[in-house]
Design a protein around this nucleic acid. Structure first.
Lengths: 210, 210
DNA sequence: TGAAAATTACCTGCTTTCAGGTAGAACAGT
DNA sequence: ACTGTTCTACCTGAAAGCAGGTAATTTTCA
């Protein structure tokens, strides 16, 4: 039996979900909450298999709530729930330990598929959301156009910096003088117009150089 | 008319693709190449809308070839092509400017869909590949289990480091002594068991702390 | 083959980071 | 009220990074 807990301030949503699931004998709506505090209270005493979490709650924002839930509960699968379909929210949600994402206007089949997927240890994104996430790659690849020319050696060193090596370590790895590595790094920083290795790597990442 | 260029050392593959597309009146197989050198030669004189690129070529690896093509050609859409379905290759490919990814055992419909998608400026991943990429998020969220406890202040400083600020800059921003910032950073490094800011950020990223 | 680009290497002076501490004040939860 | 955690701040010495050069050798490509 899969126990589901719903966190949403609109009773209609919880009702709608219950309706969708009432004929599915292997799931059970274990409870609902209409705000973050109630939700945390409930979760102190229950371990639902799945938590459906509305991102736009009145008292706290869903992202933070997601954090709080994950802090004490590694077991439950969390599926985000909103009407907006914003790629930035989706990725943030995933990075905070959510296992999936659904739009509120989903169809019954999608909900069931989501339940299956997350119970199977996979990530489920609503179809539309899925496209949005992939579009982020799109914007990355289009940014390549303005990418400054990096030489082979520079790229090699950039990658080693990204790996977490420092100047002297890279010098040793490549059988070069530390001075040389310094020079390459300096040139890289000039090309990407930054003034620290940290920023160099940050910029390189957004430009998909690494 | 959509011109397509195929780079693959197995004639069967090119033939199979040609077969799939022979009834599609809006596409035209502009040419084929069986190695990287030939491909670059051809692309010096032609600007196909779409390039189907086998990742496993005899003379060079497809990733590098993808780079080389992108270097001189921002126009063509590149779709990777292999029999393996490895998530790490897929993401590398995307980061090198590819617009999509197909398995060689694809069906006709999938190929047509891929052509539509990339011509529309979107990213296309084969269904199976798509799942793999999403699973990477999966592994991220499971790594959260062992994430050490980071305090509020530490997290704040971690985020500013991620932004590219250095110690003194953070001190100024937060109205703290540089010494204090140092202490927090030191504690962070100890908690994540690393010995440089670079590695701290790298680790924090894989743990989805930032 | 010649010019341009890339690679290698060095120097100085200054700032920042790292590793190893110590320690008081504020805050939280039992 | 007490205990543990967090936040704050300081110190020293060694290592690494940054900014500003210069310059010889090697590679690449037209």
């Amino acid at each position: 039996m899969i126990n589901i807990f719903i966190i949403d301030d609109h009773p209609l949503v919880a009702g709608g979900i219950a309706m969708m699931l009432k004929d599915v004998e292997y799931v059970n709506i274990q409870g609902t909450a209409i705000n973050g505090a109630d939700a945390l209270e409930f979760l102190n005493n229950h371990q639902p298999e799945i938590i459906l979490l509305d991102i736009s709650l009145p008292d706290t924002d869903g992202l933070q709530l997601c954090d709080s839930i994950r802090k004490n509960n590694k077991y439950s699968k969390i599926i985000g729930l909103t009407s907006a379909n914003d790629a930035s929210i989706i990725t943030q949600l995933l990075h905070r330990g959510a296992n999936g994402y659904l739009l509120k206007n989903m169809e019954r089949n999608e909900l069931l598929e989501a339940i299956d997927k997350v119970m199977d240890g996979k990530i489920f994104l609503s179809k539309a959301a899925n496209e949005k996430v992939l579009e982020q790659f799109s914007s990355i690849s289009s940014a390549i156009n303005e990418m400054p020319a990096i030489t082979r050696r520079e790229k090699e060193i950039l990658l080693l910096l990204e790996e977490g090596l420092n100047g002297p370590q890279i010098a040793e790895r490549l059988f070069l003088s530390p001075y040389t590595v310094e020079t390459h790094r300096k040139n890289l920083m000039q090309k990407l117009n930054v003034n620290s290795t940290q920023q160099l790597l940050k910029t390189a990442r957004t430009m998909a150089l690494v």
